[in-house]
Write a protein that binds this DNA or RNA. Structure first.
Length: 221
DNA sequence: GCGACAG
DNA sequence: ATCTTGTCGC
């Protein structure tokens, strides 16, 4: 890989370069293990903790976990968010003792201004199936889905469906799901629903979030 | 020109 | 993302 981008122009060019490598076909067999990834910040923009937690796809029980401490690799710019956290996330992934079958990322995938959000980027760089779950909207047209768990409506860009607004629990705010790599919109949506049997956010992101905060608290004493 | 804008 | 109390509800 070339040097990590320093400017907005370089970062956007890198997204355009990697975008053609995205595969929107569902990976064959259902994932046996699923990884949740998240990052927590300390001291503003000084330090961060990245965590990856791997769960058994069937029982949702944790099977592996890894964290790393680092620094943001890029300023926060909407649309270029991935450049900020990817180096730390890749480092954490390298510390796992197992290869997860699916990466569940915090943020968007295809539902991105250049159709190459964090989930696509991480998926292409690792070669692993990946999807994105955003807590808020980034881009694209959408309408509020029904109020029941499982209700969903499409997110479109230029008339093309790039993701889904999914209600994971009755009467709770929906999440924004989009494919990252080696999965379809429908596949990603089904996966997220299965990973969120009880709360709004998938168990993977909840577990990763907890791991980040725990490591942050541990290191702040 | 005026908003919108993942974490 | 993070800064932050109490409060309502399962």
């Amino acid at each position: 890989m070339t040097a990590w981008p320093t400017t907005v122009a370089e970062a956007e060019a890198e997204q355009d370069r990697l975008r053609p490598l995205v595969d929107l076909t569902d990976a064959g067999p259902p994932p046996r293990t699923v990884a949740g990834l998240d990052v927590a910040y300390a001291d503003g923009d000084e330090r961060l903790v990245a965590a990856v937690v791997v769960l058994d796809a069937g029982t949702l029980a944790p099977v592996d976990q890894a964290i790393t401490i680092g620094r943001p690799a890029f300023p926060y710019v909407p649309g270029l968010f991935a450049f900020r956290e990817i180096p730390a996330l890749l480092d954490a992934l390298d510390r796992l003792t197992v290869r997860p079958d699916l990466l569940v990322c915090d943020g968007h995938g295809l539902a991105h201004p250049r159709r190459f959000g964090l989930a696509c980027h991480l998926g292409v760089l690792t070669g692993l199936p990946a999807l994105g779950v955003g807590k808020t909207h980034l881009t694209g047209d959408w309408t509020m889905p029904g109020e029941r768990r499982g209700d969903a409506s499409p997110i479109t860009l230029d008339g093309v469906t790039v993701g889904a607004v999914l209600r994971t629990q009755d009467r709770v705010r929906p999440v924004f799901v989009s494919p990252g790599h080696r999965c379809s919109v429908a596949g990603a949506t089904a996966q997220v629903l299965a990973l969120a049997p009880r709360f709004r956010l998938p168990e993977t992101t909840r577990a990763a979030d907890h791991a980040c905060r725990a490591a942050l608290a541990e290191r702040t004493r």
